[in-house]
Amino acid sequence: MDFLIEAILSVVRPIGITEPVLQFMLVNAILGISMYLLLRTGMFSLANAGFMAIGAYVSVLLTKELDFALGAALVVAVIVCALIALPIGLPVLRLRDIYLAIATIGFGEVVRIFFLNVDNMILSYLNTFQDAGLRRYELVGGGRGVRNVERLTETWHLIVFLIVIIFLLTRLQRSRFGRAMVAVRQDERVAANMGINVVYVKNMVFVLSAMLAGAAGVFNGHLTRIVTPEMFGFDRAVDILAYAVLGGTSVWAGPIVGGFVLTALPEVLRRFNEYRGVFNGLVLLLVIVYLPGGLINPQGWRKLWASARRRLTGQPAQPEAGGG
């Protein structure tokens, strides 16, 4: 495995992708898949930055305070995310489209603000009910976050995890549950008339997606060495959405490529200094306008190619055959 990673790095290092960059690319690919699951089922949820935060905080506390191994912390954190996702999903997933997005942004903010203030909440509880008489109490460090986290995540952890997820995902998609996801996205009411339990499918996908986002949070927390609430705000929720949108949601490879590209691009373009941030937005914009199905979408490329050729040869636009 080490040899393989070294081989990959020797190829990509010249363009500015070092091992830490590669690690964040892999973490973001996992986040991309968590978003992909939601969009594939037609759920426009922005809750995953919140679940990522929960995964990160829970696991970091476990490894730092209770000396858990990373694997054990991963399992606990992912289960915690699932247990939180279930009661959130049941009421929230009755909403659709932009309303679901807003409600889930709200969830993300609640999580962020919870971790910002949880120390003070515990302090006042201790002083009020336990007469502890404490001046201050520190568990997660409020806005300064949990510091000096051990850097436990290894590149091979991420590669193995991603491969396992891809394997399970492709299995899932070919099963009747996978078909039900696609049906629910396209027409919920017809899906219900076909015998699909729409509420079950949506909630199950929401939980699975939260677990994946939580796992990404676990790996991320043990890469950055510090976990603060500001790492998991609205920006992060939008970044996660961008991975899936850039890569596309027609195949599983889409969100992985999306996560890779948007993470690697600022590093590859490092010499453009302050302008490099612009490129991510530009790439995203170009893809949304010219390749609405995302980067990994053969049909979209074919259409783009056909229209480009028409323009070059000066032929008038022809109506699309079949009306697809």
């Binding site: 299995r171 099963s175 009747r176």
Partner: peptide, 18 residues
């Protein structure tokens, strides 16, 4: 195949485990 959803009995875990 989507129409046949209700006739399938296999759970998600059985599907994943093939």
């Amino acid at each position: 195949l989507i129409g046949q959803h209700g006739q399938g009995r296999a759970s998600m875990l059985e599907a994943i485990a093939f």
